[in-house]
Amino acid sequence: MDAMALRRRRLRGALFEGLCALASFAGVGILLAILIYIVRQGAGALDLAFFTATPKPVGETGGGIANAIVGTLLIVAVAAAIALPIGIGAGIYLAEFGRGRFADLVRLVADVLTGVPSIVIGILAYELVVVTMHRFSALAGGVALAALMLPPLVRTTEEILRLVPGEYREAALALGAPRWRTVLTVIVPAATGGLITGVMLALARAAGETAPLLFTAFGNNFWNLNPGQPTAALPLQIYQYVISPYDDWHRQAWAAALVLVTIVFVLSALARLATRSTRRGNQ
């Protein structure tokens, strides 16, 4: 009787454990399939002109996305210039001075802001920059991406600075260093690797954003290096190619997708390498 019950319990367990295994294989499988598909479709469509030329007019095949790659770099650079000082500064505040209600509020707000849809943030940048300047621009796109990068950057900076051993802090203070010098010359350098990781992940996230750029950076079929003018961006270019009815543009969308995924993955991989080297350095 008992043996029967035990067998039934074991069977039940095996069944559900099997389902769990199936779920994870299905999840990982689908996602891997997407990646492999992008690489296969994209690799066939890549050539040198793709990286050196600007888009051809409708109807002509060929052309490239060089201006969109540069545009993405420009927009992300603007975003980084705004978000990095504020984000790292706020992270320092939370890690080094962050006790009490105000700090808890900042943490909560940063976490909640991370979940606000990027398209909503795009509207903020539109109202603040596009409406004031009366035109779309890389600057507006950069402001949108900066607002998106900021919350996660603050939280990762805090987490990373907290990993620096307390002895470093105490040793510096015991030597008579004031607090600001302790933070800037001891704690931040000790956490550089981790900080680079946080920054890289934030940049990777920003580089792939599309929605907030639709009505801020807007896109551009030509070269533009002026942050005050409408600017092409890789994800925008992909979107425009995908929703177009032309086969050659679809082919280029796959190629551009492969380029974008590669950029995002390289940034993420660099991020991991940076953490690994600091961990080793600290040992």
Binding site: L201, A204, G208, I238
Partner: peptide, 15 residues
């Protein structure tokens, strides 16, 4: 892998 997949941009999932 799961972390990497969370990093794939939305426009690429759309494509």
């Amino acid at each position: 892998l799961v972390e990497m997949l969370a990093a794939i941009p939305s426009v690429i999932y759309g494509l």
